[in-house]
Design a protein around this nucleic acid. Structure first.
Lengths: 172, 172
DNA sequence: CTGCCTGCAAACTCTTTGCACGAAT
DNA sequence: ATTCGTGCAAAGAGTTTGCAGGCAG
């Protein structure tokens, strides 16, 4: 007699919910769920660090290639057209450190106030919780008759180890 | 009868010292004091609000024109080559609000921590004192083994009056 | 005179867009 | 069948750069 298989855990985990969120956002806007949007979405959500549009394109092409399709079935234009959809639906956060190109990061938790510390030696971007920012932005804005929409604190800094040893531990 | 006019204040203002600072910076770097650099410097220091490279070019051309010279004796390239000199010598502050083009502002006081509040309705940039930032940047950076170089807080906000009346009091 | 500075225009980077074809509903 | 989405390539904005001639020191 066959053993009873363990009950399958069907509780939704966070990955499907992000995908659901994206697809429901598309539906709400009357937009279609295409192979390209799915691949770009998967590529974006798989990122652990900040990434650029170009890196996202490359990663999305890896994904479709692994699925047996041509790399050029994802185009740069589509990446640029999809990025706003993912930031508007709060799946990604856009981080502009004033370096010419924009960076993106999966938005794992909502309503969190974050600051960026950019290392001038290794170009790495660190995300730091900055809970006071919201209060500060509100205080300052209301004095001007404005309502804050978003705020960001960016710190540029140099690496102490690099200063002392001329080599950054985070890149060698 | 005519009222007595108030005594004219002849105390030296900050303008001469700023020019000295710029020229001594040039000297220290072994750079030459040219007509173009002087005009661009004058144009920059005369600004009361944030300005772009293009606006600076225009204003610098006004200055040389008033001095009887051709507008095209100042070129866009020279403006772009002079701006870094003025920011490195701390005469200007660079403000990047992530809108594609960079803004600049005469750096009247040094070592002041400022935040920018950008109104999304009228595109105006307000500079707000944010003294707590330095402490915060230091605290956060040191945890990462970094030393803060600069920091900026940027708040994007919407105008309450514009929201209610569909017209921004600051632009009509 | 020497070599930095300049204007010009082309190049560059990142991003956006017009168009005709292709695919999702 | 419609209508939206796509790739391509060109356009666009802002900034940088190579070059030959010009001017400061």
């Amino acid at each position: 007699m066959t053993p009873v298989p363990p009950a399958k855990d069907t509780r939704p985990v966070s990955i499907p919910s992000a995908r659901e969120k994206f697809e429901s956002y598309l539906a709400k806007k009357g937009l279609r769920v295409t192979k390209q949007r799915q691949a770009i979405f998967d590529a974006a959500l798989a990122q652990k660090e900040h990434f650029t549009a170009e890196q996202l394109l490359d990663h999305a092409r890896d994904i479709v290639e692994r699925a047996g399709k041509r790399r050029d079935s994802i185009s740069r234009a589509t990446v640029y057209r999809t990025l706003p959809l993912m930031t508007e639906s709060a799946l990604l956060r856009e981080v502009d450190i004033g370096s010419g190109e924009k960076f993106y990061l999966p938005n794992t938790q909502e309503n969190i106030q974050l600051a960026q510390v950019v290392c001038l030696d290794c170009d790495r971007i660190f995300e730091i919780s900055a809970p006071f920012m919201e209060w500060y932005g509100s205080t300052v804005s209301s004095k001007l008759g404005l309502s804050p929409v978003s705020q960001r604190l960016q710190v540029s800094a140099r690496c102490n180890v690099f200063r002392d040893t001329a080599s950054c531990p985070r890149r060698g």
